[in-house]
Design a protein around this nucleic acid. Structure first.
Length: 279
DNA sequence: CGTATTCCCTGCACGC
DNA sequence: TGCGTGCAGGGAATAC
């Protein structure tokens, strides 16, 4: 079975949303018949409620908040994060187990929802019904929602001296904009990533918000096309590689102006930008 | 409060 | 060929 993700396509918000859409038809409405934890020490230990509460429950919905997926059942929700190497697949129950297959959630359809994560930066946690997990408490708005707009970003950025790229990747400001999409959005908006967030005009924030929305929405569309049949994913997601303008292109020529793409670090993250197109 | 740094973990690309 | 080293990443935790 071809993997859905590899190191070339980290699960950012569009991949998580694509995963949600792919999973939902196979998981929603199904009854969980068992939970098998082969390796409970992920980013955090998997709490006992997961294995104790899920069996016998019907999956009422599959939701996404930021880069988290939630499997809703009556007593509560399984809260999943794919980290940077996590993968979720729906497979025939008899599918042989491989090295990093940490969790199986068996379904009454005879299939199994399998969580695989080589680097174990992902997590599987428990959110009791009616509560909001601490990890979801202080998150900013969804980037594709109407709550994420230029005036919001402009106001939140006043007095912030951190680089705009760091600010944009702050999950308390807006969720789901990881390193790739931050770099690409700033390129599209023509803003240099090192510029202090608090010194950027309202007009430029309008361009940035528009760029974030356009790029994320486009990436989701692309992801969707690679995932027609979630049970038999054919080929790599490859959603974006041909469309990147700066991310991973350090030292290469800018596709717009021809200048060499620069690189540096911001907030301890590799950052690429074009000194000609971004000011 | 905001900002900077460290850490978690593994696979991979390097250089010797 | 097989080491060792450094890096990548989300994002929480910690330190200032």
């Amino acid at each position: 079975m071809a993997p859905l993700w590899d190191n070339a396509a980290m699960p950012e918000l569009p991949e998580v949303e694509t995963t949600r859409r792919g999973l939902a038809p196979h998981v929603e409405g199904r009854v969980i018949t068992g939970v098998l934890l082969r390796r409970p020490d992920l980013r955090w230990p998997i709490p006992p409620e997961v294995a104790a509460s899920l069996p016998g429950q019907r999956v009422l919905g599959v939701r996404r908040r930021a880069k988290y997926l939630l499997l809703d059942t009556a007593p509560g929700s399984a809260l999943l994060h794919l980290g940077m190497s996590g993968m979720l697949r729906v497979l025939p129950a008899a599918t042989p187990v491989e090295t990093h297959d940490h969790v199986d959630i068996a379904l009454d359809s005879g299939r199994v929802l399998r969580f695989t994560d080589p680097r174990r930066f992902g997590c599987l946690l428990w959110q009791p019904a009616g509560e909001t997990h601490d990890l979801l408490q202080r998150l900013g708005p969804e980037p594709l929602s109407d709550d994420f707009h230029a005036q919001y970003l402009y106001q939140r950025s006043r007095d912030r001296k951190a680089p705009i790229k760091t600010f944009l990747m702050d999950q308390a400001v807006v969720v789901g904009v990881g390193n790739i999409y931050a770099a690409e959005s700033l390129f599209r908006a023509g803003i240099a990533p090192g510029r202090a967030a608090g010194s950027i005009s309202r007009e430029r924030y309008a361009r940035l918000v528009s760029a974030v929305k356009t790029i994320l929405a486009h990436a989701i569309t692309r992801g969707g096309t690679t995932l027609r049949d979630f049970l038999n994913p054919d080929g790599a997601p490859g959603y974006f590689e041909q469309e990147l303008f700066v991310y991973g292109r350090e030292g290469e020529a800018c596709r717009t102006c021809g200048r060499t793409i620069r690189d540096g670090r911001m907030g301890n993250r590799a950052t690429a930008w074009c000194g000609g197109c971004q000011t």
